[in-house]
Amino acid sequence: MLPVAPSRILRSAVASVLALVCGLAMVGGSAYALAVNLPDGDRENRAYLEAEPCASPPGGSADCLWEQEFTASDIVTERGRGARNELTLTAVDDPRFQTRTHAPRSILRRLEEGQKVTGTVWRGLPREITAGGDPGRTGHYPVDQRRNSLFLALILAPGGLVVTAVCALRLVRRRAPTRPMAAALGLGLALPVAGLIMPMFLGDLQDRWWGVLLVWSVLAVLMALTAWVSATYTSPERVEESAPGTDLRD
């Protein structure tokens, strides 16, 4: 639930202006992220994918790929919002080479304490691990910032556009807000929440664009239907109490 009812926000010109600024900030933030990261946001990711295998064991951080055996320990697998799915990787031939990293839960739940895994090392960090023939990316895997920017725009831009449009209309009209306006504002403020709760439903789909888009679309449609019902539904009791021709809008 929203801490302040959308209808209360729209009744106040000051609150409407503040909400308008928030809407513009959401749209501007997503636009900035796209403008900065879309042109070359995959530089590190592309460098990793184009890296060649090392001819000999690297003495330290190197731009070539090297496969190394690690021991998995301190494995944590959780579900739900804010869940941790991580483990500690310790190099078998050099116990000083140890790192704590995230990994897919689908792989972690099949690992046992002390189990050996094969890691692909690039620039001094294990970027991928393979256990039982199943590969998975670690938290050190080079992130494609273009994808993150698209996710950010998906979360912020729709809600920001709705909030901006509703608040601008309210300020231009200079009249009491209608129920559809309040419902639309509630939808605009609630849409970013879908981005916060998405990890609860994504599971192993979080690395797949189509999975994120699917879950987001389902949550957005459910929220839009809720807003539509809120804007159009009138209880039977209210209809009976209202005189003929009375406008039932807030």
Results as ranks from 00 to 15, higher is better:
residue 1 M to S: 11
residue 3 P to V: 06
residue 4 V to Q: 09
residue 6 P to D: 06
residue 7 S to K: 11
residue 17 V to L: 12
residue 23 G to A: 09
residue 29 G to K: 00
residue 30 S to P: 04
residue 35 A to M: 10
residue 36 V to M: 14
residue 40 D to V: 11
residue 43 R to G: 12
residue 47 A to K: 13
residue 48 Y to K: 06
residue 49 L to S: 12
residue 55 A to I: 11
residue 59 G to C: 04
residue 59 G to N: 05
residue 59 G to A: 09
residue 59 G to T: 08
residue 63 D to Y: 12
residue 64 C to N: 07
residue 64 C to K: 05
residue 66 W to K: 07
residue 67 E to Q: 15
residue 67 E to V: 10
residue 72 A to M: 02
residue 73 S to A: 10
residue 74 D to I: 01
residue 75 I to C: 02
residue 77 T to V: 15
residue 80 G to Q: 00
residue 81 R to N: 12
residue 91 A to M: 03
residue 92 V to T: 14
residue 94 D to T: 07
residue 95 P to G: 06
residue 96 R to K: 14
residue 97 F to E: 14
residue 99 T to M: 09
residue 102 H to T: 10
residue 104 P to V: 00
residue 106 S to K: 02
residue 108 L to G: 00
residue 111 L to Q: 00
residue 118 T to Q: 10
residue 123 R to E: 13
residue 125 L to I: 10
residue 128 E to P: 04
residue 130 T to G: 00
residue 133 G to R: 05
residue 133 G to Y: 02
residue 135 P to I: 03
residue 140 H to P: 03
residue 141 Y to G: 01
residue 143 V to H: 14
residue 144 D to T: 07
residue 145 Q to L: 15
residue 146 R to W: 08
residue 149 S to K: 04
residue 157 A to G: 07
residue 157 A to C: 11
residue 159 G to H: 06
residue 165 A to E: 07
residue 166 V to L: 05
residue 168 A to Q: 07
residue 169 L to Y: 10
residue 174 R to Q: 11
residue 176 A to I: 07
residue 179 R to W: 06
residue 181 M to K: 04
residue 182 A to Y: 02
residue 185 L to K: 03
residue 187 L to N: 01
residue 191 L to H: 01
residue 193 V to M: 11
residue 198 M to Q: 12
residue 199 P to W: 03
residue 199 P to H: 06
residue 199 P to M: 07
residue 203 G to P: 00
residue 209 W to T: 15
residue 210 W to Y: 15
residue 218 V to K: 08
residue 219 L to Q: 07
residue 220 A to I: 06
residue 221 V to P: 06
residue 224 A to Q: 09
residue 228 W to S: 09
residue 235 S to C: 10
residue 237 E to V: 12
residue 237 E to D: 15
residue 241 E to S: 13
residue 243 A to R: 14
residue 245 G to Y: 03
residue 246 T to F: 11
residue 246 T to Q: 15
residue 248 L to W: 12
residue 249 R to L: 13
